[in-house]
Design a protein around this nucleic acid. Structure first.
Lengths: 249, 249
DNA sequence: CATAACAAACAGTTTTTGTGTTCGAACCTC
DNA sequence: GAGGTTCGAACACAAAAACTGTTTGTTATG
């Protein structure tokens, strides 16, 4: 809803806000704000305390899934469409967790493919797709993200060979390679890359200026990167110099 | 909805019925019946043809998941509660696919357990459960049923040891053992039984008079059976003679 | 080609959802 | 533990959505 976004943004900007303040800014009653906050807190979009709410983004961590999911939706869809064009019918594809990869999964739902999603969000998006052969990896779904990780996931990946891996990331630079916040996630991404013939990384422009904790792979391990047209030229050129095909959409 | 159930039942009884006939019986317009039929056919609850609809139950096959799901709901819930009582906190449990086992999964959602569901329906019921450690097996989800099968599922089960396996069935008799319609399913049930210390079978009374194609295990492989109080005494006694604890609820 | 079945469009109705107010309970602060 | 604040349940009302039946033109099928 519109007011929900308004509240999230206001809280994110201010760090924390009182219920009364939010009621005034949104032009609604305090009761409505309380109901909204309860809902949003439940989804992990903010944190509730008596009298108001505070942002969950203050730490250096990755923002929660629900927040990223509604952020830059058309950008992710543009990337997803571009990736879908690079996949041929009949291919076997492994799709990483994350919101951008979820968009890719949705874009591939009506295609004739074999797909292994690495998150239950993508799974749910692909269930019931008539022409699609859905293959689930094992593993433990991380709360919120629903990314499958752990030895069962690694074993599932190790047992298979894919034509293409679609990999998301938290940071990507030519110098530091593809990085992720979560160590367990990073291990899975590495396993997915290892069992795929071709690796396509997807990323919004912002991630070119970021490096996360866990190194997944050097940039040279990627075959293609699909990103937006506002990606910094320097990084794009550096990636190209490493032999990575970069597509900006 | 009420009218939907009415339509399903009428079609099931008659084998097939015209739109006009259904409109009269439900006291609505033909347009409404058409809209209902479209919806129901989409869910696999019946089959549509020009002028009417026919039941999908005419063959010897297992009725579709969506049909079984809304059938005998309180009976399944009673069984589920009884099973939940037999599970201690902290146990590792593998839960089979099927509608009765789905009820068990729901009953266990708020418990402190490690759970591996063998169907994505159960997975969705367990996602977000705060105290529960959810463990996904790999595999290919069968359409509708969403039961995970195949070598990935078997490998996931083979790699683990559970305290308890909750197993559903299509048929169960002391003489013919526990049987299933689907060969792939049967293999998974067998693997689940093999990796569990204790095996609890769940079943409505009707299944005691049935034997399906694929043998999963002899009745003696079960440690307990939870069923309803209208289960035939002869079968119950025969199971008890094999050393199986039978609980009727 | 004619007739029956269908699907889209629209209008009216019903149901659901969302919102604001009131009030008693729960909760901090001093 | 007194006093003020925040909270959440309950109710009433409004807005939105879902549902239904009619009309219309289109599509199948014999």
């Amino acid at each position: 809803m519109d007011r929900h976004r308004q509240i999230i943004d206001a809280v994110r900007r201010a760090g924390q806000l009182s219920v009364a303040e939010l009621a005034e800014r949104t032009g609604t009653s305090e009761m409505t704000v309380r109901r909204d906050l309860e809902l949003l807190a439940e989804q992990g979009l903010l944190e509730r305390y008596r009298g108001g709410a505070r942002s969950v983004l203050l730490r250096g961590e990755e923002p929660p899934f629900a927040l990223r999911e509604t952020d830059g939706v058309e950008v992710k869809e543009r990337i997803a469409v571009a990736v879908a064009e690079m996949i041929a019918d009949g291919e076997a594809v492994v799709i990483d967790a994350g919101t951008t990869c979820l968009a890719v999964a949705r874009a591939l739902a009506r295609r004739r493919l074999t797909v292994m999603p690495l998150s239950l969000h993508a799974t749910n998006a692909l269930i019931g797709a008539p022409q699609l052969r859905l293959l689930m990896p094992g593993g433990e779904p991380r709360p919120g993200e629903l990314a499958l990780t752990g030895p069962l996931t690694e074993a599932s990946l190790a047992a298979l060979r894919f034509d293409t891996a679609i990999i998301g990331c938290c940071g990507l630079t030519a110098a530091n390679g593809l990085t992720a916040y979560d160590l367990a996630d990073a291990a899975i991404k590495r396993a997915a890359i290892a069992s795929a013939h071709r690796v396509i990384a997807v990323t919004e422009a912002a991630k070119f200026s970021r490096t996360a904790l866990a190194l997944v792979a050097p940039a040279s391990a990627l075959h293609a990167v699909v990103t937006t047209d506002d990606a910094p030229d320097a990084e794009v050129d550096a990636l190209k110099a490493l032999g990575v095909a970069v597509r900006r959409v």
